[in-house]
Write a protein that binds this DNA or RNA. Structure first.
Length: 403
DNA sequence: TCTGGGGTCCTAGGACCC
DNA sequence: TCTGGGGTCCTAGGACCC
């Protein structure tokens, strides 16, 4: 049976949402209509473009470039900080609204959803383009921001379609339209085909999605392994993946911070790691999960990334135990280079602390669990910083603000 | 005032076992 | 003093997404 998938994508999400927030709070200008970007804090060394207005785009400003570079392209560029709490609110509103149309909905990211509308013709009729317009216009009216809707017979085509022309548009990419609508595009317009693969393909004389669709599969496999098969199928518009409602648990939980200056003192790095461990452990427990592997990730002053990890004998969700692992990894792996960004990642997440513990150890862990539980509930109620471990003094938290 | 943060997935290579 | 091969687990690094 023919499937019908919608992909809904908020246009310039962070910028649109900040525009709405500002308008709601008495700001006179709609920042969607001027050369503007949402950007990180340059003083904290996070100064990159997170989202851009259509006019900023016309100046050649692209996502993820430095604000410094963006300004050099457009002298009167206006920069606004992100407001993640508000973005999450807007995202949730959108998701709840879209859920009315089908229970088979997948939130792909903060500003994107897939809807599977297969077999809904009795409810909505067969005119999916009209339905898409209705959804798009209702969102604009109800929430004040615009979206693109892509319609296809699978997720890949729906996703590619929503990317065609922006903003505030509906596009289809049915299988019989792949040749006319998708093949003329450059290879790196294909979903999941990034810069690095595009360069390799160009070196092989493959420039367009059509070239890719017609390329020799053996050649692709030689250069890209299993990814070669994906490229070929995607270029033909083939995709069998399902729209999966996301009750699925995370595969990993991580946190990392770019520091306001390069940190070289071991004690300072350990304090940062401790605070990160507390946050990531809190998230772990709030999702009722246990971690099986712990990793410490680094980016040094030369922008070189590296990481080390360990596998635990017994999965845990206890901050002190996780920190013990973090410290062990740090001692073994830090190259004593100046650190620009440092993080903690918990992986191999499990629903249960399955282990070969003795009964005695198990009851021991339960006591620690209880302590964490109480601390977590206080943090939930009164916020971060309301509970501080005896081993940890207030000033430990202030490393990032020190100059 | 140069270059974020949170994810998923894949691959290569080494250790280890039978 | 010739030196296998399959399977699994683990780690490091990289590509890619928004």
């Amino acid at each position: 049976m023919q499937r019908i998938i919608f992909h809904i994508d908020v246009n310039n999400a962070f910028l649109s949402w900040t525009a709405i927030y500002l308008l709601n709070h008495g700001y006179k200008q709609d920042i969607r209509k001027i050369p503007s970007v949402i950007g990180g804090d340059e003083k904290a060394r996070r100064g990159i473009v997170l989202a851009k207005s259509p006019i900023a785009k016309k100046y050649g400003i692209v996502t993820a470039e430095t604000l410094y570079s963006a300004r050099s392209k457009c002298k009167n560029l206006q920069v606004f900080p992100p407001n993640y709490a508000f973005y999450k609110e807007q995202s949730k509103k959108l998701y709840n609204y879209l859920s009315q149309y089908t229970p088979v909905i997948e939130q792909y990211s903060i500003d994107e959803c897939f809807l599977d509308l297969t077999g809904t013709s009795l409810l909505y009729g067969n005119d999916y383009v009209s339905l898409a317009h209705k959804i798009k216009d209702e969102i604009k009216e109800k929430f004040g921001f615009t979206v693109n809707v892509g319609i296809g017979e699978n997720k890949l085509c729906a996703k590619m379609a929503s990317d065609f022309e922006k903003p505030d548009k509906v596009h289809t990419l049915y299988l019989n339209e792949v040749e006319t609508k998708m093949w003329p595009l450059k290879v790196n317009d294909l979903f999941m085909l990034g810069k690095s693969s595009a360069k390799k393909l160009n070196d092989l004389g493959i420039y367009t999605i059509k070239d890719l669709a017609e390329a020799n599969i053996g050649l692709l496999r030689r250069h890209f392994k299993s990814q070669g098969d994906y490229f070929k199928e995607a270029a033909l518009g083939i995709d069998y993946s399902k729209v999966e409602p996301r009750n699925a648990k995370n595969k990993c939980i991580s946190i990392s911070r770019t520091l306001p200056y390069d940190v070289t003192r071991k004690e300072d790095l350990l304090k940062i790691l401790f605070s990160e461990t507390e946050e990531v452990s809190f998230t772990l427990r709030s999702q009722k999960l246990y971690t099986g592997t712990i990793a410490v990730t680094y980016r040094n002053n030369l922008f070189k990334n590296y990481s080390h990890q360990i596998t635990l004998d017994n999965p845990t969700n206890v901050t002190e135990e996780i920190y013990k692992g973090v410290k062990t990894i740090f001692e073994a792996s830090w190259k004593e280079d100046p650190i620009r960004n440092i993080g903690v990642r918990l992986g191999d997440l499990k629903e249960k602390a399955v282990s070969q513990m003795s009964l005695f150890e198990e009851s021991d862990v339960k006591v620690v669990d209880k302590v964490e539980e109480v601390m977590d509930s206080i943090i939930k109620k009164y916020g971060k910083g309301s509970v501080i471990r005896a081993s940890k003094k207030e000033e430990d938290y202030n490393i990032e603000r020190r100059q």
